[in-house]
């Protein structure tokens, strides 16, 4: 049975399922219990994560497995790598992906590389949940979409769901995967609703989804920009242009075959991303099309991305920063 849940509730449900089905799953992060368990003050449940994604875990699974950490990302992310290496299956919450700035070594030089450096004689089944993207007026240090950075590191996997059902299924897949996975939760859609199946199910890592079928142009999105693409497709339909929408879901592994299959159907492609344009996922998909899909292209690949600038605070500027439906429509029209 599917029912409607918020994106953040779907994540919460996945965490409950994962912890109930595997005693090795532990949840670490700032405020993940959020001060729960203060019996002296009559408090059992408290925050359950700054976004509420870990609500109820403390009551259900206890203090040993649900741990508030110090504000010390390098320390607890590093500890999670060590725990993963020795038999636990930690799910770490890095409150905002921007905070990887103070915690990069455990991800870059440890989690990503230990298995390879040790000749395959190690596994790091770690999931790093983190909130990404602009849209909440959170300014330059709480709004970045840094998934391109983690997707570029061999040994890490990176996913970014666009809807609650995928959020639940991909998170369960990420937690049960034996490789380290960075799981991105776009903050602008955390509190939007969608149908989510009940119970235990997974969505495979490394597989894109066809969010809308079409024949004239392919719009590729990730996370929130899938919704931008869908809105643009609707507007284009009114003009008589049939747009297909590909939801990447996984940035690493990247489902290049799905992108190329769609390009083969449409001959034209626009990649929409909330991150800046340099060395990011939009550039990566464009390169894929040039390398392996050149003969399929009826027009140059177009990218609609954020500019090469930090995310501004002022609502007037932030709204200019993120890709909009209007910019996607303009890009499609310019392709002729």
């Amino acid at each position: 049975m599917a029912r409607e849940l918020l994106f953040v509730q779907a994540i919460n449900e996945a965490l409950h399922v994962a912890m109930a089905s595997d005693p090795d799953v532990v949840v670490l992060g700032e405020d993940v219990a959020g001060g729960g368990g203060r019996s002296d003050q009559g408090i059992e449940e408290a925050w359950g994560g700054v976004m509420g994604a870990t609500k109820g875990l403390y009551s259900a699974f206890g203090a040993e497995r649900v741990r508030d950490t110090p504000i010390s990302e390098m320390g607890f992310l590093g500890a999670a790598v060590g725990a993963a290496l020795t038999g636990l299956r930690p799910v770490v919450e890095i409150m905002f992906i921007d905070f990887l700035g103070v915690a990069f070594d455990p991800l870059l030089n440890q989690a990503a590389k230990l298995r390879y450096m040790f000749g395959g004689r190690a596994r790091v089944p770690l999931t790093v949940r983190t909130v990404t993207g602009a849209g909440l007026r959170a300014a330059a240090q709480h709004s970045q979409s840094l998934y391109g950075m983690t997707a570029a590191i061999p040994g890490l996997k990176t996913v970014c769901p666009s809807n609650p059902a995928d959020a639940k299924g991909l998170l369960l897949a990420a937690i049960r995967d034996d490789d380290p996975v960075v799981f991105c939760e776009p903050k602008s859609i955390l509190f939007s609703k969608g149908e989510v199946p009940e119970g235990d199910f997974t969505v495979p890592l490394g597989k894109a989804a066809l969010a809308r079928a079409g024949s004239d142009v392919t719009l590729v999105g990730v996370g929130r920009t899938v919704h931008v693409a869908l809105e643009a497709a609707q507007a284009l339909a009114a003009e008589g242009t049939s747009a297909e929408v590909v939801d990447l879901r996984s940035l690493s592994p990247l489902d290049g075959d799905a992108v190329l299959a769609s390009l083969a159907r449409t001959g034209r492609i626009v990649v929409i991303d909330e991150a800046p344009p340099r060395c990011g996922i939009a550039a990566d998909v464009a390169a894929l099309c040039a390398d392996r899909g050149f003969d399929l292209l009826d027009a140059p690949v177009r990218r609609v991305t954020a500019p090469h600038a930090p995310v501004p605070f002022s609502p007037a500027l932030e709204d200019l920063y993120v890709p909009t439906v209007a910019r996607v429509l303009a890009a499609v029209r310019e392709m002729g």
């Binding site: 590093g78 790598v81 060590g82 725990a83 020795t86 636990l88």
Partner: peptide, 23 residues
């Protein structure tokens, strides 16, 4: 758990292994 090319990086790894031992 390995030698380590990053100065100080073994420390949190050991902390994590200790967490595994405890849990």
């Amino acid at each position: 758990l390995g030698a380590n090319g990053i100065v100080g990086a073994g420390i949190p790894l050991a902390v994590g292994a200790a967490l595994t031992a405890k849990v």
